[in-house]
């Protein structure tokens, strides 16, 4: 019986269809050669090298924080897309839609997972940075990858910021108020920033309430519908797209700069 099953599996494995999907033929790798080929012949595994130094799998060394950050990002992407099905970014509907997400949808913990996942990702990203610093892994030739890492950290924080504005509750609207007023305080670019009043010809101000950094952010002089749409697009399209590009470069540079840092 078992032999027959094995034979059947082997036959399925040898079909044109399966062989066309898995470049290896889909068998479980048994010897060293096959184990190496698994990494080389699979697009997703291809992120990794084939062989790594032994300290790279020690949790005590890596803390697993970089990998977890990426994984949590994927979880956030999936749960985020699911939430988008039930969320309308308008002042009228946003709050109610978010409130309904727990009740009117099966598996009503998507928002919880998205929210707590975001908090968790911030923690893992910070700790990843801490680990990279403490092992001196930013030193040549990995300097630029550290710079990309800082950009990823910034993007993570911006994603969190734009994310908590979307439920359009008190936290959201006062977060926008404070955040956009900080933009208004930016030097030269904001109406309330140092130097902005110097940018004028005669009595015409170049930087005024209808044209400054705050105006770009909230698409108006007052917080309302337009601001919500703007942050929605930033949170769901612009920032995820940007962070994915930087992540790709980050991972690619890890490989190109010699893999995980190791003592010389």
């Amino acid at each position: 019986m078992l032999d027959k099953l094995k034979k059947l599996l082997e036959n399925i494995r040898q079909t044109q269809f399966v062989r066309s999907i898995f470049r290896m033929g889909g068998g479980f790798p048994r010897d060293v050669r096959q184990r190496m080929f698994v990494m080389l012949n699979n697009f997703f595994m291809h992120l990794h090298p084939v062989r790594i130094p032994k300290h790279a799998i020690k949790i005590k060394y890596t803390w697993c924080m970089g990998g977890l950050s990426f994984f949590i990002f994927l979880v956030l992407a999936v749960t985020g897309m699911l939430l988008m099905f039930y969320y309308r970014p308008t002042v009228e509907f946003a709050y109610g839609d978010v409130m309904d997400m727990n009740e009117q949808v099966p598996l009503g913990i998507m928002r919880e997972i998205h929210r707590w996942g975001a908090h968790l990702m911030i923690i893992t990203v910070w700790l990843h940075m801490f680990r990279v610093f403490m092992t001196g892994s930013y030193k040549p030739p990995r300097e630029f990858n550290w710079v990309i890492g800082v950009i990823l950290l910034l993007l993570t924080m911006l994603l969190s910021f734009t994310g908590y504005l979307l439920p359009w509750d008190q936290l959201a609207i006062w977060g926008i108020s404070v955040g956009s007023n900080m933009a208004a305080a930016s030097p030269f670019a904001g109406t309330e920033g140092p130097g902005a009043s110097l940018l004028k010809i005669g009595s015409i101000n170049f930087v005024h309430k209808g044209a400054d950094a705050r105006f770009v952010l909230i698409a108006g002089r007052f917080i309302g519908e337009a601001a919500l749409v703007r942050f929605y697009v930033l949170h769901c399209v612009v920032l995820p797209f940007t962070i994915m590009i930087f992540m790709a470069v980050h991972f690619w540079r890890v490989r190109k700069d010699g893999g995980i840092s190791k003592p010389l």
Partner: peptide, 29 residues
């Protein structure tokens, strides 16, 4: 330094750890 002198295969040593870490994180969330 002593650890880094030895090379190991990513399959299955690293990917299994990653799988466990992912499942753990998902369960936690």
């Amino acid at each position: 330094w002593h650890d880094s002198q030895e090379k190991i295969l990513v399959w299955p040593d690293l990917v299994s750890i990653e799988l466990i870490a992912m499942l753990f994180a998902l369960g936690f969330l």
